[in-house]
């Protein structure tokens, strides 16, 4: 420690400059290096996404080329038409939308009730439930496909979308409860109590006070759940066997065969599959931040 201080005071400084100046300059230099490093890393991170989008819009010969074309010579939608025209694209989209909306709706209702219980009530078994929620998130999905498949098989629910929804609920619920609990806790109980004093009954207090304040949290949780369900592959892959009932991700995986892959259409399809997620993601971030701070605590 003392050597460092000594070294710094010992460095020749221009007369009239305070001794802090070299330190600041050195930090600025380090800043430049770290700025450049971060830019380089960002470029590397972003490259695959860029490469996907650029490939999707390229004419075929420029995709199958030994020297990469960094930009398409002309933008074409051929790959998108080829992808969309492949069998089971539209049914895949429809099935995914169906599964996602059902999962989100059920998960939100169930998780919200659970979150209120955890955030607003002290009860025996609370600790146990919290522990269970945490533990449950650690059970690997890969381990559960076997029994889930066998159970749904016994119930005749394999190759059925409701079975997929049920399976998805298990994986999204614990985190949804935990996430929503955080939002409910952040709404001061006093607001609800004030509403009760002002003559609301509990249900009204809940609907007029708690619900609007937690709405951004519900949106955030809904988006998170939707993304999870839209992206899920393994369960849908195992549970669904007829192509008409495939979800989007299973359809996407069917591109890759041991015999070879058509990369133009695959990249176009990938772009299409990623688009809703990116949009959702962008939407959610703004909602959550603005929603949390607005309103309630101002008065």
């Amino acid at each position: 420690m003392s050597t460092g201080t000594l070294a710094r005071t010992a460095t020749p400084t221009r007369p009239g400059k305070p001794p802090a100046a070299p330190a600041r300059r050195r930090r600025g230099g380090r800043g430049l290096a770290s700025n450049l490093a971060l830019l380089a890393i960002s470029a590397v991170m972003f490259f695959p996404i860029y490469w996907m989008a650029v490939t999707a819009f390229k004419p075929g010969p420029e995709i199958l080329s030994y020297t990469p074309h960094w930009l398409p010579s002309r933008f074409t939608l051929d790959n998108f038409t080829a992808a969309v025209d492949r069998p089971f694209f539209w049914s895949g989209v429809a099935n995914s939308l169906l599964v996602v909306s059902a999962t989100v709706l059920i998960a939100l209702v169930v998780a919200f009730l659970g979150a209120v219980a955890l955030a607003r009530f002290e009860f025996t078994g609370r600790q146990l439930f919290v522990a269970m929620i945490l533990v449950v998130q650690m059970v690997p999905a890969g381990a559960l496909i076997i029994p889930i498949y066998l159970m749904l098989n016994r119930a005749g629910q394999t190759d059925q979308l409701p079975g997929v929804v049920l399976a998805y609920l298990t994986f999204v619920l614990p985190f949804a409860i935990w996430m929503l609990r955080g939002f409910v806790v952040n709404v001061p109980v006093e607001l609800e109590e004030a509403a009760l004093i002002d003559g609301c009954n509990r249900l009204q207090a809940f609907r007029r006070v708690l619900f609007p304040l937690v709405a951004p949290g519900l949106v955030a949780t809904a988006v998170y759940t939707a993304i999870q369900a839209w992206n899920e592959f393994l369960l849908a892959y195992v549970l669904i066997s007829t192509p008409e009932k495939q979800t989007m991700t299973v359809w996407l995986a069917s591109f890759t065969t041991t015999r070879g892959t058509e990369y133009g259409p695959l990249m176009a399809a990938s772009t299409l599959a990623a688009l809703p997620v990116v949009i959702f993601f962008a939407l959610a971030q703004r909602r959550v931040v603005s929603g949390l701070t607005a309103g309630s605590v101002k008065g």
Partner: peptide
């Protein structure tokens, strides 16, 4: 901000899409 945009874009990329893109690369 640039780094955040890149990170969020990667984060938002569905797993199956990531697999496809890397396979292509």
């Amino acid at each position: 901000l640039t780094a955040t945009v890149a990170l969020v874009a990667v984060w938002a990329t569905p797993g199956l899409v990531a697999i496809a893109v890397w396979q292509w690369m």
